[in-house]
């Protein structure tokens, strides 16, 4: 019996605790991300933003959540019930699953698997199903059009995103996210305290990744999927109450996820901005990581406040005719430089 306890129960409880903690932090973070977004947008547009509920509007997310919870869930009569209900659940679950492999510092990661990057890539490529299913099950033309747009858009941008990932793993020599972060811990030009983040040598790739991330999460200026002005809300027109809330949560969760991926791949994850002893404590790791993620999130909102929505053909042109050749070319360049200079990472 003791065997059973030490072999199964304790590790299981430990993992479960980690999962619950991560999910709780994420939910909280996500709730306040909506507030953050509204505040930042308001500042950009010279407004004040939510300031009624609680001090500085701090209780606004809770009020929103309560409102959504108490509404009635409406399922349209022509809808395909099972798929209609499944779609938001799928979006939400997938958005949560991806967090299993995100390292918060060198030791804090739920599943330190060898193919972490691929896992994230796989999960993000699954995200499109929630949208397609929702659009189809709603039995509404606006929803269907929205989901068709989403599918084409996400499949298109995945290609260049994949090439960016290949470039990064070429530099790091591993698909493990922790290894990728550690590979960025060596400084530049022999100066050990400079941050060796990949954003510097791979700057064009970082931009491509960020913009593709916008497209993957259907954020402005690529939010044609929702496009209030043309599709009256896109794939989730027919959703209400908690089903809608799940989509909403999933979307913001994906946003945080892409920001976290950007900070791991290009901004050195948990590494401090200056590689000196006092900043390098493992306890400070998660803080650096969260700060970097918040910075990328701010950029997401900043872009939303600054750019008008793309037209659909422009979106496709950007993906296939600009990003794809650019990332392919840069991949070749990086490979050439690494081989020519003998800088290829050593693998076992």
């Amino acid at each position: 019996m003791a065997n059973f306890l030490t072999d199964y129960l304790i590790p299981f409880a430990w993992i479960l605790g980690g999962i619950i903690l991560t999910v709780a932090c994420l939910m909280g973070g996500m709730a306040y991300l909506t507030l953050f977004e509204r505040k930042v947008l308001a500042k950009i547009q010279l407004r004040i933003g939510p300031n009624i509920v609680g001090p500085f509007g701090l209780l606004q997310p809770i009020a929103d959540g309560l409102k959504l919870l108490t509404k009635e869930t409406i399922i349209p009569s022509g809808a395909n019930r099972a798929v209609f209900i499944l779609a938001p659940m799928m979006t939400f679950i997938l958005a949560l699953t991806a967090w299993a492999v995100i390292p918060f510092n060198q030791y804090m990661v739920l599943a330190n698997i060898n193919v972490g990057v691929l896992f994230l890539f796989a999960i993000s490529s699954l995200g499109v199903y929630g949208i397609i299913m929702a659009g189809w099950a709603s039995n509404s033309k606006y929803a269907f059009l929205g989901s068709l747009r989403a599918a084409a858009q996400m499949v298109s941008y995945e290609v260049s995103m994949g090439l960016v990932l290949v470039t990064v793993l070429l530099c790091a020599g591993s698909l493990n996210l922790s290894q990728i972060v550690l590979a960025q811990s060596h400084g530049w030009f022999g100066v050990s305290w400079l941050p060796g983040w990949y954003v510097l040598p791979l700057a064009p790739m970082a931009v491509v990744f960020f913009v593709s991330g916008l497209a993957e999460t259907n954020r402005s200026p690529f939010d044609l999927v929702e496009g209030e002005s043309e599709l009256v809300g896109g794939y989730f027109v027919e959703y209400s109450s908690m089903t809608f809330a799940l989509f909403y949560l999933g979307e913001y969760m994906n946003m945080i996820l892409v920001s976290a991926m950007t900070s791991i791949l290009f901004l050195g994850g948990w590494l401090p901005p200056l590689n000196i002893e006092i900043l390098n404590s493992p306890y400070l790791g998660p803080i650096w990581f969260v700060l970097k993620t918040i910075f990328v999130l701010f950029c997401f909102i900043w872009v939303r406040g600054s750019f008008p929505r793309f037209r659909y053909d422009q979106l496709m042109r950007l993906g296939w005719k600009i990003f794809l050749p650019l990332s392919l070319g840069y991949l070749l360049l990086v490979a050439f430089v690494l081989v020519y200079m003998g800088w290829l990472p050593k693998v076992a």
Partner: peptide, 22 residues
């Protein structure tokens, strides 16, 4: 075979099946 598993998801589920569904 974790690599194959992930590639299976990325390629078949993430790309091929989407087109099927389409």
């Amino acid at each position: 075979a974790e690599f194959l598993a992930m590639i299976l998801v990325v390629v078949y589920v993430g790309a091929v099946a989407v087109l099927f569904l389409f």
